[in-house]
């Protein structure tokens, strides 16, 4: 047990030493990996931001159903019930003519002339209505169609799908999200392949320059693990350092951009989420892990091809 620990410590020490011995190659390998990781992290962050912005925009969706004056009470109740039983509806509010008048007056209380004008026309001109809250953007029209059924024609004056321009915004955001996701997957894959190639070659060159040493190690009775270990440590170090640098860059970007947009409702939630300590920790851990995996994968390929440990 003790011997294993000693050996493990020596493998780590040798790997770290090799990392610094090939400092230029190490920097190149790490830098390319930083680029790949930054792209991946940015893609994730932008996904989180657009998703939560879409979620934020998707709330407060509503269908307004304006009713005729003097409607049939029973038919109105039936319509209301139909809304209630619809799973895409989260809230149904009935606004009577009086309430509509009050709300209108409240929102235009500054504009005395307008109110006086209305008073001159006389009576209450605003219709009673249902305000129906809808949970899902794509169901907005379905809910609207409920009120457009033939049987309600006698009580419904008109149906308005609220925030129609919001629908366009949401569509655009969703498209952007799709674009960001696919573009970043492509870019990250390219850089991942490039960094794998660079690490592969770095380890290959290290194997060539140390081939005599490796042969001596073999003849002195080193196990394959003892020979491979330092290379794995070396390539994992690219991953660890690249992970830390990439996360720090992305975190800095989140803070600097976040300060500018954090006042807007669409971004509050994602900004809070992204700057939570647990999220930051997860980001560092995940990117280091990803970097280590890429490093180990490519160095294992290089060793499998050039270390020739199968022939003892």
């Amino acid at each position: 047990m003790m011997r294993h620990l000693i050996t493990l410590r020596r493998i780590f020490a040798a790997g770290i030493k090799n990392f610094f011995r090939n400092s230029w190659l190490s920097i190149a390998a790490t830098a390319v990996m930083v680029v790949a990781l930054v792209i991946v992290l940015m893609a994730v962050v932008l996904n989180v931001v657009t998703r939560s912005a879409i979620a934020e925009l998707s709330t407060n969706l509503k269908v307004s159903v304006y009713l005729q004056d003097n409607t049939d009470e029973a038919l109105r109740k039936e319509l209301q019930n139909e809304f209630f039983t619809n799973s895409n509806v989260d809230k149904v509010t009935f606004i009577s003519k009086e309430e509509a008048q009050k709300q209108f007056a409240a929102s235009f209380q500054e504009d005395k002339k307008l109110l006086e004008g209305l008073a001159l026309i006389g009576g209450n001109t605003l219709p009673a209505s249902f305000e129906v809250g809808v949970t899902d953007l794509s169901k907005l029209e379905d809910v609207g169609n409920t009120a457009k059924q033939e049987k309600y024609a006698s009580i419904v004056e008109s149906v308005s799908l609220g925030k129609t321009d919001v629908k366009k915004t949401i569509d655009r955001a969703a498209n952007a999200q799709n674009f960001i996701t696919s573009a970043s997957i492509i870019a990250a894959s390219i850089f991942a392949v490039v960094s794998m190639l660079i690490i592969f070659n770095t380890i290959r060159m290290a194997i060539f320059t140390r081939s005599e040493e490796i042969r001596t190690q073999k003849l002195l009775g080193a196990t394959p693990g003892y020979i491979r270990g330092p290379f794995l440590v070396e390539s994992s170090m690219y991953g660890v350092i690249a992970g830390i640098v990439a996360s720090s860059i992305v975190l800095a970007a989140i803070y600097s951009l976040g300060n500018k947009v954090s006042g807007q409702a669409e971004f509050i939630e994602s900004y809070d989420f992204l700057t939570k300590p647990s999220t930051i920790f997860a980001m560092y851990a995940a990117s280091m892990l990803l970097g280590i995996l890429v490093g180990i994968f490519s160095s294992t390929l290089a060793m499998g091809r050039y270390l020739k440990l199968k022939h003892w």
């Binding site: 003790m2 011997r3 294993h4 000693i6 050996t7 020596r10 005599e212 040493e213 042969r215 001596t216 190690q217 003849l219 002195l220 009775g221 080193a222 003892y226």
Partner: peptide
């Protein structure tokens, strides 16, 4: 087959490190 970057002591120690000697 000595390792040039290691001293005499380190070269000999190297063979012992491989077998996990403290």
């Amino acid at each position: 087959k000595l390792i040039q970057k290691k001293t005499v002591f380190e070269n000999v120690a190297y063979a012992l490190e491989i077998v996990g000697m403290g």
